[in-house]
Design a protein around this nucleic acid. Structure first.
Lengths: 337, 337
DNA sequence: CTGAAAGCGCTTACAG
DNA sequence: CTGAAAGCGCTTACAG
């Protein structure tokens, strides 16, 4: 690191006639420094263009000011929204975000990224990737790695998490359709590896049940969070002469595929087919017809998970280590209200 | 960092009867270690579950294995594609990516993120955000910060960069329209703060000129990389009875807005209006009609900029510190070919 | 409010 | 191929 300018704490000490301990104190905003000395130190730092060496501070203090965020990939609007929120919150707290992609716990554990905490490069990790193996929680706990799960829960194991009530989201999305007068309501699911997928499905099922409705033949189709699965679902329904009145898509990607198929096939939306998605993709409010959807509290997720992680890192009393946020239905133009 | 398990290089030395220097050597794959000793050390490391302490290594070696990527935001498909490519490449090289958002050089310099290099937290930085002030290059050079500019150039100043030939992209996109027989061709520009915007515009202008065409009244409209600007452009043209035959949109967001307006207004695409975008947004090939566009070599950008940065960090002979990649036109369904 | 001393866990010449 | 010594630049008790 030839780009560090080479002036250290000793230079400041010498220049001010104080000790490095005092210099260190002003560096860390320790109040136990005489005001005049603090000023003297600050002036010297400015004059010599002093910059504290992060590695040295980390080595002696044990705090990195870095947090790793593990995500399955970067190609999803929801993930990016959460990542953005986390970055904003971290930045505001003077922390840095290192992003690590890993499809799931196994891939993460086997990758170079495991060294992020094994070698003490970060203070903690935020995990959004799927975790299949319970053993992984134990591994993290055993090693005392501060971590928080995002959009994922582990009730039995008492694992810190910030999640969104996907059952509620699925339930409310479906109820909004039912309130709109739709009867034959379909659901296109999300990828199975995400806990959220099954919860949304359950919410959908429960809403139908509570309303004396039921999912008819072919009304629950497996999807994978892509426009293609939404498009294909509509094509298949059309082929079978089994088009529903409304569809609750597991995410907006899927919903866009449904919308696209409707448009191509001249199906009036929401007249003949209503559509509600999930995530509030940026395009949902930018393209016409504007997509009704379930907006995730991504901003709150970012704030909450960072705060929770910091509390754990600081060893604060761990109360309420399981936050469940509510999403909100946003009705726009693809549903009759 | 109570989660580090407390075994250090001395423990390994003691256990093996060798010195810490030898242990350090095997840690760094230094070939000058007797094979039997290497094995002994490795066995001890495994048995004690030893993990090297990153901070200590950084402090004494000066290498962080971290790279910062500065982007204006996370809400753009092109940015995300580049970020993904960089992450993949960094991961493959055993490096970590810290992402820092900053609207431009001024914001970056004033933010906490400046300490990323000031305090030696990273080996270098990759900059995708706009840089307005030439002084900033000097600042970086003066401090000897290894950096590479992405999608931005500074010919006079000889600044390391990996960019895409936006003039070429604009030229080829427009030529593909001209070859398709379109005459009245419009362009909706990108945000002015990006160098790429003016270059695409220039490419468009030159293609028209080379073909004996010219941009008629109202055919160049200012945009900002959003669906709204594309949508509004079409609305305005329609209101003025001045709809072009084809439009080259500065990016796919804009193009989707154009497509959307065409659809809403019943304008056949590409029959009455052709559209070509830029970036190859994931949706471009997923939604119908599939969008013709200009695909950026994002994968190559990621690979090149990481390699270039590593070369600079390693002080390698700096030949060819200015790479210009070519984008490629991808014709799909929104243009007649 | 201040400082001397020890320590954080490695790597880097240098000598052999 | 191996190791003793010094050093990287801070922070943390501890004593005063």
């Amino acid at each position: 690191m030839e780009f560090l300018n080479g002036v250290n704490i000793y230079d400041i000490a010498k220049k001010t006639g104080l000790s490095v301990v005092t210099v260190s104190r002003v560096l860390n905003n320790n109040p136990n420094v005489r005001e005049s000395n603090r000023l003297k130190v600050e002036a010297a730092m400015k004059e010599l263009d002093y910059r504290p060496n992060a590695a040295a501070r980390i080595l002696s203090s044990g705090k990195t000011s870095m947090v790793a965020v593990v995500v399955p990939n970067l190609m999803d609007a929801f993930i990016i929204q959460v990542l953005s929120a986390i970055e904003r919150e971290l930045k505001a707290s003077g922390m840095f975000m290192v992003v690590a992609t890993a499809a799931d716990d196994t891939e993460f554990a086997d990758s170079i990224y495991a060294s992020l905490f094994m070698e003490g490069r970060v203070d903690g990790i935020l995990i959004l990737s799927p975790i299949y193996d319970n053993g992984y929680y134990f591994e993290l706990k055993k090693r005392n790695i501060p971590f928080v799960l995002l959009d994922r829960e582990q009730v039995e194991l008492q694992v810190p998490s910030v999640s969104v009530d996907n059952f509620y989201g699925g339930y409310e999305a479906t109820m909004s359709l039912i309130r709109g007068g739709y009867k034959k309501i379909a659901h296109i699911t999300g990828s199975e590896c995400f806990q959220s997928s099954s919860e949304r499905l359950n919410g959908y099922l429960k809403a139908l049940e509570d309303s004396g409705l039921e999912a008819g033949e072919g009304m629950v189709v497996k999807g994978d969070f892509t426009p293609a699965c939404g498009f294909n679902a509509v094509s298949d329904w059309l082929r079978d002469g089994n088009l529903p009145d409304a569809v609750f898509a597991a995410d907006d990607n899927t919903a866009f595929g449904v919308l696209n198929a409707a448009q191509i096939n001249g199906i009036p939306v929401p007249g003949r087919l209503a559509v509600i998605g999930y995530d509030d993709h940026p395009y949902a409010s930018m393209l016409f017809p504007k997509l009704s959807t379930v907006k995730q509290p991504t901003e709150e997720m970012g704030v909450s998970c960072v705060n929770m992680l910091m509390d754990i890192v600081d060893g604060k009393p761990k109360r309420n280590m399981r936050i469940i946020l509510k999403p909100t239905v946003v009705l726009r133009e693809t549903t009759r209200n």
